[in-house]
Design a protein around this nucleic acid. Structure first.
Lengths: 228, 228
DNA sequence: TCTTAAGCGGACGCAATCGTCCGTTTGGGC
DNA sequence: GCCCAAACGGACGATTGCGTCCGCTTAAGA
């Protein structure tokens, strides 16, 4: 989105320590969000970053701003993936790549899924238009894949949201090695194709129904009593 | 599970008002959990039930106990669905029915999905064995469906957990009319069949990517500022 | 009706998190 | 090296949720 976020060089009228702290905070936020979910206390992020709470709040006035800042890079990766998908020679390949890339991102960067879901309703001025563009591109991608005959005709662009949200839920619920996630993606992609040739799936989860490390709240791997 | 919960008759050594309050609390809990997620304050449940907090805690010492109590009926329905699925004449039909029943339950009883996920790791004495039995039955169901030739051979019983958790995530993220949920279930069921005849799907979600009423936390439909 | 113990409810103490205020430190221009 | 505005950090008051304690109420048996 905004290209400035990668300008870590110098002259932008911001003092060096401020810029340094901002980066530290973002790194810390990603780590903490991954460990305890995006509802983790702001103070925890601050401590992890080695800064005071006031500094944290100065850079990111709300938790929302922090979350958005922390995962801006991932969001950008998603946008890039979409562009690349549209550029792919084979429409189906592009479609598949997009789904797999975004899902891989969701499963690798813990905390991102929650942020991803939480970010949906946001209708900020700038983001609104980029979202609109994304939506248009997605529709194009779908139509192209359908025209090529590989994607079933009754697939609806909104189904992509369904897939992404369901996948979010899955990886949020069980932060395992990703076997379950890959399994789900493979199943879904197969059902989207017109010629479902029952291609081989990634190996199933080894987990039994009991032995799932799941917590009540958002992302945290377990009810840990605050490791302060 | 425990059959006593449905014994609302009389003689069980419990005073009438106590029994009445217990029921009121359960009703209130389901309502509140549906509205604000299972992390809603205990006091809110108490107020809704028209009882004091102490009474709430007396009946359900922990939030976990309350959640379990509130959705015991739904859990039982799940168990019954499994039994019925095994009794179905056509193995595939049974398999399909099970998935659809459980998913329908998840989408209809708001708050239940979160409870469902949260309940997984629990290894209580009594529940442990009933879970084990459920697991065995599920495996049987899968094997039978595979033997009949309708269910793909590489389907693994753990895939059922994958489906259920993903579906939980979806309905939790967007508490809409259920179109998305039905869509997902249909896609998945199709990819599980050996002869994927591209049968018609339920209609797609009408939602666009922006316009999703999603909150950061568990189940609540929106960031509502406490309607106390 | 009387008795009594089970049941009730709200006030209270405790803990966690939020977000701000304000005195102190420091980067970087001169 | 000096200066000052920008940046920092921690203490603090406010808010919210938890779970218990204790005096009052009431169901139900005699």
């Amino acid at each position: 989105m905004t290209a400035e976020s990668s300008r870590i060089t110098a002259r932008d009228g911001v003092r060096a320590d401020a810029r340094r702290n901002r980066e530290r905070i973002l790194v810390a936020a990603r780590a903490v969000f991954a460990e305890h979910g995006i509802d983790a206390p702001m103070a925890t992020v601050a401590r992890r970053a080695g800064v005071g709470v006031a500094t944290l709040y100065r850079h990111f006035p709300t938790r929302d701003a922090l979350v958005r800042g922390a995962f801006a890079q991932q969001m950008e990766t998603c946008a890039r993936a979409l562009t690349e998908a549209l550029a792919a020679p084979d429409p189906w390949q592009g479609f598949q790549q997009l789904v797999e890339t975004v899902c891989a991102l969701q499963r690798e960067e813990r905390g991102f899924p929650a942020a991803f879901v939480a970010a949906f309703p946001e209708s900020t001025s700038e983001h609104a238009q980029s979202r609109q563009r994304a939506e248009r591109d997605l529709t194009t991608l779908v139509r192209r894949a359908q025209a090529s005959g590989a994607l079933r005709a009754d697939f609806h662009p909104s189904d992509l949201a369904v897939v992404l949200l369901a996948h979010c839920g899955l990886v949020t619920a069980l932060p395992d090695d990703g076997a379950a996630s890959q399994r789900l993606v493979a199943y879904l992609l197969q059902s989207f194709r017109t010629d479902t040739a029952n291609k081989p799936l990634p190996p199933p989860t080894t987990l039994t129904l009991r032995s799932l490390p799941i917590a009540t709240d958002s992302t945290g791997p377990s009810r840990c009593p605050d490791p302060r």
